[in-house]
Computed example of a mutant assay.
Amino acid sequence: MVQQAQGTAGGRSPEDMPAWQLARRRQIIDAALAALADSEYEQVQIRDVAQSAGVALGTLYRYFSSKEHLYAAVLQSWAEPASRSFDARSAGLDPVERIRVRMRRVIRAFERQPRLYKVQVSLQSTADPQARALLSDFGRTAQGWLTADFAALGPGHDRDTAAMLWSVISTMLSDAVIHGGRPMADVYRLADRFIDLVEPRLRAALG
Rank of each mutant, 00 (worst) to 15 (best):
R140A: 12
P114S: 09
P95H: 07
K118W: 07
D196T: 01
P183C: 04
L93D: 01
R159W: 04
T126P: 03
D160C: 08
L165M: 07
I178D: 10
T147A: 07
K118G: 06
G156E: 01
Q120C: 10
D186R: 14
L135G: 05
S174K: 15
V106Q: 15
T141S: 14
W166H: 15
K118H: 09
L197C: 00
T141I: 07
T126N: 05
L165C: 04
L135V: 02
R182M: 02
Q130H: 14
V96C: 00
S170H: 14
A152D: 01
H179Y: 14
Q120Y: 14
A185C: 03
T147H: 06
L173A: 09
Q143E: 09
D175R: 15
T141P: 04
D192E: 11
A191Y: 13
D175I: 06
V187T: 07
G181V: 01
R159Y: 07
T161Q: 03
G144N: 10
D196F: 01
E111R: 15
A205P: 02
L93N: 01
V119F: 12
F150S: 00
V119T: 08
E97Q: 14
D192K: 12
A163W: 08
A131Y: 11
D128A: 08
D149L: 08
V121A: 06
I169M: 15
Q120A: 13
D186I: 02
M103E: 15
P155K: 11
G156N: 03
R201E: 02
T171V: 02
G144E: 08
T126G: 04
K118N: 05
W166G: 12
P114Q: 12
R189H: 12
A127N: 08
I169L: 11
R98V: 02
A163M: 09
A109M: 13
S170E: 12
D158L: 01
F138A: 08
L165W: 08
D186G: 07
D128E: 09
L93F: 04
V106S: 14
T161A: 00
D94A: 12
V106E: 15
I178C: 10
S136F: 06
F110Y: 15
H157L: 12
M103F: 10
V168S: 11
A151H: 00
V101I: 06
A162W: 04
S125V: 07
L165N: 08
T171E: 11
A176C: 04
R108L: 11
S174D: 14
H179E: 12
V121S: 07
V121D: 03
A151L: 01
W145P: 09
D158Y: 02
L173H: 14
D160L: 10
